[in-house]
Structures are given as structure tokens and as C-alpha cells.
């Protein structure tokens, strides 16, 4: 029985996805594959595509990594031939910096707007509390008096 449990455990360990961790080179390759756009697909990286062009790009990346090329050299190689379009994330330079910075600027401006508005709302509310309440009309006064009388008698 003990041996059966060991065998079953070993089997599941072997077939478990991601059971074995990637080697540093494999992890680097996967990360690089993920950086490049599949030229013939819509919104897929070469990592997730089996199209002919993606396979060729993957092979070229593998070849360059094996030859000792740095990540930057690999990016440069493809950008030189395909243009910046081939990169899934635009480089953080020039006009592209605006694309990277815009969400952060939006968040900061939004928070600032929220702060200014909430401050105004609080101020307005406090002013309302501090101010003298409007005097009651004769009708309201009569209603209040009758309610008070009812309350006292109860």
C-alpha cells in the first residue's frame, strides 16, 4: 500500500504543470519571447503563437542568446528590421514616455481633484452646521408644540 501511494505521488508530481522550475536561461528566453509581437497574429506575443513567423523569431532569439547577445542587443536587432511596432511595450523614451506617464499623471490628477472636492464638501457642510438654522414657520411651530405635548403626556 505504501509503495502504491509513493508511486501515485511520484506520478502526479511528474505530470504537475510547472512542477519543475525553469532554468535561468529558459526563464530569460520566455521573458524575451513575451516581449515580441507575433507579426501575423492579433495581440499575441511570439511566446503564445505557433505561427511560422513567431517560430522563426523564437528560434532567432534562442540563437542570439546562445551566442551571448544581451537582451538589449536582441531588442535592437528586431526593432532595426521591424520597427518599434514589434515590441509589445513601447520603449520608455521620447514621445513614448508620455504613454507610460499618462496613467500615472491621470491617477495623480484624479486624487488631487478628489482631495480638493472633498475639502470643499466638508467646508460647505461645516458652514451649514455652524450657521443659524432657519426659523420655523407658524405651522411647523404648532406641529412641534403639539408633538411635544403628546410626548410629555405619554
Amino acid at each position: 500500500m505504501k509503495y502504491i501511494i509513493i508511486l501515485i505521488s511520484a506520478f502526479f508530481f511528474l505530470i504537475a504543470p510547472g512542477g519543475a522550475a525553469d532554468s535561468p536561461t529558459e526563464a530569460r528566453l520566455k521573458s524575451l519571447y513575451n516581449e515580441f509581437r507575433c507579426p501575423t497574429c492579433q495581440g499575441l506575443s511570439v511566446k503564445d503563437s505557433e505561427a511560422g513567423f513567431s517560430v522563426q523569431i523564437r528560434n532567432k532569439i534562442g540563437e542570439m542568446v546562445a551566442a551571448g547577445a544581451s537582451d538589449e542587443m536582441i531588442r535592437e536587432y528586431f526593432v532595426k528590421r521591424y520597427g518599434v511596432w514589434i515590441l509589445r511595450s513601447p520603449p520608455k523614451e521620447g514621445f513614448n514616455l508620455l504613454l507610460w506617464g499618462l496613467p500615472a499623471i491621470g491617477i495623480v490628477l484624479g486624487l488631487l481633484l478628489l482631495y480638493v472636492k472633498s475639502k470643499k464638501w466638508v467646508q460647505k457642510e461645516q458652514e451649514t452646521i455652524k450657521g443659524e438654522p432657519d426659523p420655523l414657520t407658524a405651522e411647523e411651530q404648532q406641529l412641534l408644540d403639539s408633538d411635544m405635548k403628546r410626548f410629555e403626556n405619554s
Binding site: 507579426p39 501575423t40 511560422g52 513567423f53 522563426q56 528560434n59 532567432k60 528590421r81 520597427g83 514589434i86
Partner: peptide, 13 residues
């Protein structure tokens, strides 16, 4: 076979 000419010319299709 490795598509080196197509890669060198940045072929999309």
C-alpha cells in the same frame, strides 16, 4: 529554413 532572409527584411507576411 531558419527564415533568415525574411527576418532580415522584417517580413510581416
Amino acid at each position: 529554413e531558419d527564415g533568415r532572409i525574411a527576418l532580415d527584411y522584417g517580413i510581416y507576411g
